[in-house]
C-alpha cells in the first residue's frame, strides 16, 4: 500500500503485479476518498470498537469493502 510519483513509477516498481492494477492502482485522490469512509473518520471516538459493531459501523465497513472490490 504504497505511493508512487506517477502511474509509470508504480508500474516499473519491482513489486508491481499487473493483475492487481485494475483495482489497486488509483490516483491519490481516489485513495483519499476511500479512506474518507466513516470507518476511518470515526476512529477518534471513545467507543470506536463498539461503533464498528453497530449498524452504522457495519454499513461503513460494507461500503468500504464495496469500494475496494
Amino acid at each position: 500500500m504504497n505511493l508512487f510519483r506517477s502511474e509509470e513509477h508504480a508500474c516499473t516498481w519491482s513489486g508491481f503485479e499487473p493483475e492487481m492494477a485494475d483495482r489497486m492502482l488509483k490516483p491519490l485522490a481516489g485513495w483519499a476518498d476511500i479512506f474518507s469512509n466513516d470507518f476511518f473518520r470515526q476512529r477518534g471516538r471513545p467507543d470506536y470498537l463498539s461503533w464498528t459493531r453497530s449498524k452504522d459501523g457495519q454499513a461503513a465497513f460494507a461500503k468500504l469493502r464495496a469500494d475496494l472490490s
Partner: peptide, 25 residues
C-alpha cells in the same frame, strides 16, 4: 501531500498514485 479535514491542500507531484499488490487490510 498536505491535507486538512476534507481538503487536499497539496499533492506534489500532482501525478502521485497509490498501488498495492495485496488486498487492503
Amino acid at each position: 501531500i498536505e491535507m486538512r479535514d476534507d481538503e487536499i491542500l497539496l499533492v506534489d507531484p500532482d501525478t502521485i498514485v497509490g498501488y498495492t499488490s495485496a488486498e487492503v487490510g
